[in-house]
Design a protein around this nucleic acid. Sequence first.
DNA 1: TGTCTATGAATGAATG
DNA 2: CATTCATTCATAGACA
Lengths: 81, 81
Amino acid sequence: MHCKQSNTRWLPTRDQIRILKELYDDKGVKCPTVEQVQRITLQLKWYGEIENKNVFYWFQNQRAREKLKNNKLTSDVQVPK
Amino acid sequence: MHCKQSNTRWLPTRDQIRILKELYDDKGVKCPTVEQVQRITLQLKWYGEIENKNVFYWFQNQRAREKLKNNKLTSDVQVPK
DNA sequence: TGTCTATGAATGAATG
DNA sequence: CATTCATTCATAGACA
């Protein structure tokens, strides 16, 4: 454990991010159930401090921001008359 | 510090939050009836813009998130004794 | 060091 | 009531 951060917010480790993205992008886990979140959290604990709510928020934010990006992209193509 | 927000969604004032929490935590008002919601809304109007549905949603969210927290998201890994 | 960006966190609103 | 979406606040890290 290299960087013990003071009790601020969760800072995901590289491995945690890698695994989360694998789940989201490759395995299509976009919207895990609470039980899945718990399992994922357990798995990610191996790589560093993490709580259920961190995982919960991570997926929520992924979905929200993926949608935002898509909307932005598609709206860019729209040429206002 | 209440910056003027765009008139999208309800932003509870500190006083409104304080009163709502008093009701919920101290007075045990977890699931107010429609009439209670109306009375609460009237009371809270003194402190700022608010509608019945804001109060309704507030209690609904409180219940949902309290339950989430207790059941799932906050629970540490239970180490069997 | 101030500003900016990415993103963790929070919550009002809404849907299933 | 459980779950998800939309939007905003907060802040760590990058950069100048």
